[in-house]
Design a protein around this nucleic acid. Sequence first.
DNA 1: TATGAATGAGGCTTCATTCAT
DNA 2: TATGAATGAAGCCTCATTCAT
Lengths: 203, 203, 203, 203
Amino acid sequence: MIHAKRQKRSIVVDKRKEILAAAIEVFARKGYNKANIVEVAARAGVATGTVYLYFKNKDDLLLQSMKTMMDTNFEDIKKKLIKEKKAIDKLFMFFYHHIDVFTTRPSMARFLMVELRQSEEFYKRYPTYNPFHDYQEFVEELVKKAIKEGTTLPYNPSTVSYLILGAMDSVVTHWLIHPESVDLIAVTGEIRKILHNGMKKEQ
Amino acid sequence: MIHAKRQKRSIVVDKRKEILAAAIEVFARKGYNKANIVEVAARAGVATGTVYLYFKNKDDLLLQSMKTMMDTNFEDIKKKLIKEKKAIDKLFMFFYHHIDVFTTRPSMARFLMVELRQSEEFYKRYPTYNPFHDYQEFVEELVKKAIKEGTTLPYNPSTVSYLILGAMDSVVTHWLIHPESVDLIAVTGEIRKILHNGMKKEQ
Amino acid sequence: MIHAKRQKRSIVVDKRKEILAAAIEVFARKGYNKANIVEVAARAGVATGTVYLYFKNKDDLLLQSMKTMMDTNFEDIKKKLIKEKKAIDKLFMFFYHHIDVFTTRPSMARFLMVELRQSEEFYKRYPTYNPFHDYQEFVEELVKKAIKEGTTLPYNPSTVSYLILGAMDSVVTHWLIHPESVDLIAVTGEIRKILHNGMKKEQ
Amino acid sequence: MIHAKRQKRSIVVDKRKEILAAAIEVFARKGYNKANIVEVAARAGVATGTVYLYFKNKDDLLLQSMKTMMDTNFEDIKKKLIKEKKAIDKLFMFFYHHIDVFTTRPSMARFLMVELRQSEEFYKRYPTYNPFHDYQEFVEELVKKAIKEGTTLPYNPSTVSYLILGAMDSVVTHWLIHPESVDLIAVTGEIRKILHNGMKKEQ
DNA sequence: TATGAATGAGGCTTCATTCAT
DNA sequence: TATGAATGAAGCCTCATTCAT
C-alpha cells in the first residue's frame, strides 16, 4: 500500500511535468494557436481532461510552458557564468551562452521568440510576470557591476541591456530564418568586439 | 471610357485601402490569430465578402498589410536620409528615424514587431517576400559604404546589421510594453554613442 | 440605324444563346452546385448581371439548359430515324443513336444523367416539365406501332419503354465511369439482340 | 473494465448509427449538396461536432451512408436468393427482390438512385470503392452460371448485367417519380418475361 | 484523480443575387 | 439593356472545455 501511494505521488508529479514537456514540444512545433490540447494530452500520455486538472486552461498552460522554458534556460546559462569573475566577462559569456542555448534548441527558440512577443495580453492578464524581466534585470545588474568594477563606461544600464538583448534576439531570429547564412561563431565574436570597444573604459 | 475606368479604379483603391487600414488596426490590436475577418470588414465599413474581392484570403490580407506598412515606413525613413551625406550619419539617422516612426504609430509597430516574427510560415509560403530583407540589405550597404569612407572599422556588414536592427527592435519592443520606463531620446542617443565608439575607426 | 437595330436584335438573340451554351458547358463540367454564375457569365462574354436579364435565377438557367440539351438531342436523334420505316427498326435505331449521341458528348451526358435525377425538386416546382417525358412517350408510341405492325408481342408499352430507356441509361452510365471497359458497339448489338429476341413475334 | 468497454462501444455504435440514419434521411430528402451537417446532427440528436467524431467530413458521411445502404440491401437480397437453385432463377429473383427492397424504402432508394450517379467524383477520390461494383459482379456471375447450366444463350455477361441493372434502375426511378402510374408487379413480371424470352436457350 | 466522448460557439470562405450607374 | 462591385447569408469544420463515469 505504501509503495502504491509513493508510486501514485510520483506519477502525479510526473504527469504535470509530462504535460508541460509535451506542451513545450507541441507549442514550439506548431505555435500557440495551431497547437491543440488533444495533441498535447496524447503526447503526454494522458487523457484530454487530465490537462485541466493541472492547468486552468490553454493560456495557463502556455504561460507555464514559457515560464518553465525561460527559467530552465536562464538557470542553465547562469550556472555557466559562475566561473567568470569579472562582470564584463559574465556579460559577454551570457551573450554567448544565450545564443548557444537557443540555437541548440531551435523549435523552442522559435516558440519563445515568437510567442513571447505576442503575449501582450499576458502582460495585461498577469502583469506581475514578464519572462523577459529576469533577463533584463540580470543584464542590468551585470552592467552596473561592470561600471563599478571600472571596466565599462557609465552608460545607462537599461540602455545597454536593450542593446545586448536586442543583439541576441536579432542574431537568433536571423539564424532561425536562414541558418545557413549566419556564421554564429563569427557573428557573436564580432558583436562582442564592437560592444566591448564601444563600452570599454580605457584604463 | 477612360474616365469611367479612372473613377472605378479610384473607388477600388479606396476600398482596398480602407480594408487594409482596418486590417492593420485589427491585426495590431488582436494579433493575427484572434483577429477575424468579420471585424475587419465591419471596421472597414464593407460587407464580409468584399474583403475577398480585394484579398485572396486572411493570409493574403496579413501579408499585404505587412508589406504595405513596411514599404511605407521604409520609404518615409529613406526620404529623411537624403540630406545626410556620410554613410555613418545615414546609418545612425536611420536608427533614429526608425524608432521615431515606429513609436509614433504604436499599434502598427506592435503589429510588425509581433506578427513578422510569427511569419516563418509566410517565409515558407511566399519565399520571395521577406519584408525585413530590404531593411537588412539597406543597412548592410550603409555599413559597406561607411567602411569604404573610412569612418568605420571593417566589421562584417551582416553582423553590424544584426546589431543595429536588433537594437532598434529591442528598444521599440520595450517601449511598447512599458512606454513610461523608456526615455527614447536618451536611449537612442546612448546606443548611438556605444555603437559609434565600438565601430569608429580612429582617424 | 436599321442596320444597327438588326445588329442589336441579333446580338440579343445571341446573348441568350451564348449564356445558355456557356451554362451547358459549365454545368456539364462542374455539376449544378459547383457551377457558378460568374463563370457562366464570363464564358458567355457577358456581365454577371446580364444573366439575370435572360434567366430568372440559377434554377431557371439549369432548367432551360437541360431542356435545351434534351430537345436538341431528341431532335437530332429523331431526324436520323426518318428513313427507318418499320416501328421496330425505329425503336432499335433510337436506342443506337441515343447511345451514340450521348457518348459523343460525354460531359453533357454526365450532366444529364446526373442532374436530371437530382431534379425531383424541379419536377415539383415545374410539374408540367419532365424532360424525360418526351423520351418515354416517344418510345411508347413506337412500341404501340410495332405491336400494331405485328412485329412485336403485345407487351405493355410502358414496360418496354422502362426496359429500353433503362438499358440506354445503364450503358451510358457505365461507359462514363469506365469508358475503356465498355465496347459500345458490341454491347448495343447484343442488347438489341436480346430485346429483339424477347419481344419479337414469330411470324 | 470489459464491461465498461462494451458499454462504451455499444454507445458509440448507437451514436454512429443514429448519425448514419439521420444522414441517409436528410441526404435522401435534400440531396447531398443541399443537405447540411447541422441538420443531420440535429436529427441524430447530437451536437454538430459529434458528427466529426465518427466521420471525417461530409464526403465521408455520404460515402459511408451509401456503403451502408448498399451493403445492407445487397445482403438482404442475397439471403432471399439462397433457396433458388438455378442461376437463371436467382437472376430473376434478384431483379424482383431488388425492386421490392427499393420500393419499400423510397427515401433510401431515391438517395441511392440520385447520389450514386453523382458520385463520379467519389469514384475518383475513393477509387477502391464502387458500391455498384458488387452488384455488377454478382449479376455477371449469375449470368455465367446460367450459361454454364445451359439455360441461357452465351451472351456477354457484362452486357446482360447492363441490361438487367438498367431495367431495375429504370423501373425504380419511374416509380419514385410517379408511383401511381407504375404497376410494379405487372411491370417486373413483363420485363422478366421479355428478358427470359430474349435470353433463353431452347432446350 | 483520471477519462475521453460530447459539446457548440466561432472562424473562414463562397456565391447567388441585387442595384446604382 | 448592360455592367460588375458589393452584399451577407449560409456552410463546413475545428477545438477548448466540460462532465458523467
